[in-house]
Nucleic acid binder design. Structure first.
Lengths: 181, 181
DNA sequence: GGTTGCATGTAAATGGTTACATGATTGT
DNA sequence: ACAATCATGTAACCATTTACATGCAACC
């Protein structure tokens, strides 16, 4: 799934500028399962414009660069629908947190505890934001489904960390205890 | 977290060849939260060897390229321990599956159902493998913790998909029903 | 006075994947 | 016969990130 398709997806929800598309991946609904930077978005929008998949309307602004507002064309909508039918790539998770924790026995116990506490706080904060999200407008079924899955998974992760944190810290504090016995 | 640190991590569990390191990321315990390809592993091992962080011992084999078995040096062990102390980067999830499902209303209902069914099967299969993993040797506390977290999260994901699948398929089949009412 | 937010864009550097190259053995 | 497994390695290619370039307004 390339940056161009990602942009089409955001635009299918309504017109937006490059800056606003970035926000959708940084704080918005996509932030938990996809990312895109300016360096990827701006060139993608130019390419999509050249291909006629998006239309661009410049909004003049005082003391600021013109805001370029992009919207899907009919052709763009078709291209996006077609892209959605392709078989999705496997999910890719890159978690340095889990990699580091895997080697918890090489870390000071306090560090292990701190690492887990930070992560619990992060999950709890994310959950609050996701649950608070009382949308004014009607949320499409797909968006609601994905949001619900995010909440379910994050909740399970936070609960697991909370439940097992102390046992892990104790284990790495007494590495010989089990082996000696 | 670069490929070199990833290799050091695998080698901290015991000596291995490049091919075996690859397997650790493809089917092994790291496969769910990190990935590395031959193109990343072999150059990393060479660099680590030049830096004196790993030692290499060639094992002659008949009718096959020599197997190069790498192992951590004392210097390598220190470097790895130091790398583990650095603040982990944020987790990065790239899920085309969730992105596509987010736009479920643009897909044929049957496709939505099939997509979810495939994913449930994948989670269930992964869970079986993770749970079956009755290790003969003692599992370090960190590894057990990470494995447990994987199981908890995958289970929550599978259960959510199973519980909410039919409702989503029904929703996308009758998109007007709710809006018209 | 410094940081954050708004707003666009480019260029260099990074890092990694994919494909290629080689080749025997074992299983279907 | 054909695919998969074992086994290493290189090179081209790709995508993305990071840094740079510019600049005002609002907030602390």
């Amino acid at each position: 799934m390339d940056s161009k398709t990602l942009c089409l997806g955001v635009l299918s929800r309504g017109e937006a500028s490059g800056y606003e598309i970035k926000k959708a991946f940084e704080e918005g609904p996509f932030s938990h399962f996809h990312q895109a930077s300016f360096g990827a978005i701006y060139p993608s929008l130019n390419a999509l414009s050249n291909e006629g998949l998006v239309a661009c309307r410049a909004q003049a602004q005082e003391k600021r660069p013109d805001k370029k507002i992009y919207s899907l064309t009919a052709k763009g909508r078709d291209a996006f629908a077609a892209a959605l039918l392709s078989q999705p790539d496997h999910d890719r998770v890159r978690s340095d947190f889990l990699f580091i924790l895997f080697f918890a026995q090489f870390l000071p116990p306090a560090r292990v505890g701190a690492l887990i506490d930070e992560r619990i706080a992060w999950y709890r904060q994310s959950l609050e934001r996701m649950e608070d999200c009382t949308e004014t407008n009607v949320v499409p079924a797909g968006a609601a489904f994905v949001r619900g899955m995010g909440i379910a998974v994050y909740r399970a992760a936070a609960e697991y960390l909370e439940t097992n944190r102390d046992a892990l810290v104790a284990d790495v504090a007494e590495p010989e205890a089990l082996v000696a016995e």
